[in-house]
C-alpha cells in the first residue's frame, strides 16, 4: 500500500479514536475495580506514616 497523505490521515482519525476509547475504558475499569479499593486506601495513607517499613 502506498503511504499517501489521505491514507495516513484517515488512519490517524479512525484509529486514534478507537485507541483513546479503549484506553479510557481500560483505565476506568482499573481505577474503580472494587477489590483494589483497599489497596488504594492504604497507598493514600502511606505518605502520612511513611517511616514505618523496614529498610532493605
Amino acid at each position: 500500500m502506498e503511504l499517501t497523505y489521505e491514507a495516513t490521515s484517515a488512519f490517524a482519525k479512525s484509529f486514534g479514536l478507537i485507541y483513546l476509547i479503549a484506553l479510557s475504558v481500560g483505565i476506568t475499569v482499573y481505577a474503580f475495580w472494587p477489590s483494589l479499593g483497599k489497596r488504594f486506601d492504604k497507598a493514600a495513607k502511606s505518605v502520612l506514616d511513611d517511616e514505618d517499613g523496614p529498610c532493605r
Binding site: I27, A31, F32, F40, D41, A43, A44, K45, V47, L48
Partner: peptide, 9 residues
C-alpha cells in the same frame, strides 16, 4: 490522605 486515590489514577 488524598481525597480520592482512584481519581488521582
Amino acid at each position: 490522605p488524598i481525597y480520592s486515590y482512584r481519581l488521582s489514577i
